[in-house]
Computed example of a mutant assay.
Amino acid sequence: MNRIALVAASLCVSLSLSAPVFAQYSAPPNTGTPFKDTSMLKPPAGARVAIIEFEDLECPACSHAFPITRGAAEHYKIPLVHHDFPLKMHIWSLDAAITARYMQDKISPQAAEDYRRAVFANQNSIASKEDLENFTRHYFQTHGREMPFVVDPTGQFAREVHADYELGERVGLTQTPTIFVVTPKHWTQVTDVNQLYQTIDTALAETPATTVRSNLRHASKPQR
């Protein structure tokens, strides 16, 4: 792979002004990003550590990170909280995210994961909305399902994706994927996905299970 291709595959970046500008560059590892509001970067209740990931189905770096984040969640038996962040300059990313939400809500979360995995695997052959529609129709057929004539007739799934996007804007995202390892007390952005396992090890070491149980008991106490 030549130098230009390496840079293009490294990161998807959105500079959100009046209209987002698309650029791709190779960021130095684990420099982090100055975020705006990180109050929502917490693990689900009862979890010592979790991965939070914002991804774009048209982003090559997200395709690279997808199996790594899923593998880490399975290896450590920790939650992975997924959010869609389709960059506005990408042609078909939003449509793909809406279809994934349809599968998640109408079929199963695993069906949505499988579809996302397939989209990432076929990214290079999807160059337009028409390509995505043809790919999705074939995907439904080969999995024994009939693709609905209109995937999102009420706009429900678009609203779900938009809610994720608004959450990302509230945090202050500038790129995809944006990956966090979170504990009840702090978060760490993982800008080099190859350091994800090491970051989780550190977070687990810093967050004993007894601390989580104590926090849960405190939260469950009735307020006087």
Rank of each mutant, 00 (worst) to 15 (best):
M1S: 00
N2D: 13
N2P: 05
R3N: 02
R3I: 02
L6G: 03
V7C: 04
S10A: 09
L15T: 15
L15F: 13
S16P: 15
V21P: 13
F22I: 14
Y25R: 13
P28I: 08
T31M: 10
D37Q: 08
S39E: 08
M40R: 07
P44D: 03
A45Q: 12
G46R: 11
G46F: 11
A47Y: 08
A50C: 06
I51Y: 01
I52M: 05
D56E: 12
L57Q: 14
F66H: 01
P67Q: 02
T69V: 11
T69K: 00
E74S: 05
L80Q: 02
L87Y: 06
I91K: 14
Q110R: 08
Q110N: 09
A111L: 06
A118I: 10
A121F: 00
S125H: 07
S128M: 12
N134C: 01
F135R: 04
T136L: 10
T136Y: 11
Y139A: 06
R145G: 10
M147Q: 14
F149W: 04
V150A: 09
T154S: 14
F157H: 08
H162Q: 15
D164A: 13
E166D: 13
E166H: 07
V171S: 03
T174C: 05
Q175W: 04
F180L: 05
P184C: 09
H186E: 14
Q198M: 07
T199A: 06
I200G: 03
T202M: 04
T202L: 09
S214V: 01
N215D: 11
L216A: 13
P222Y: 07
P222M: 10
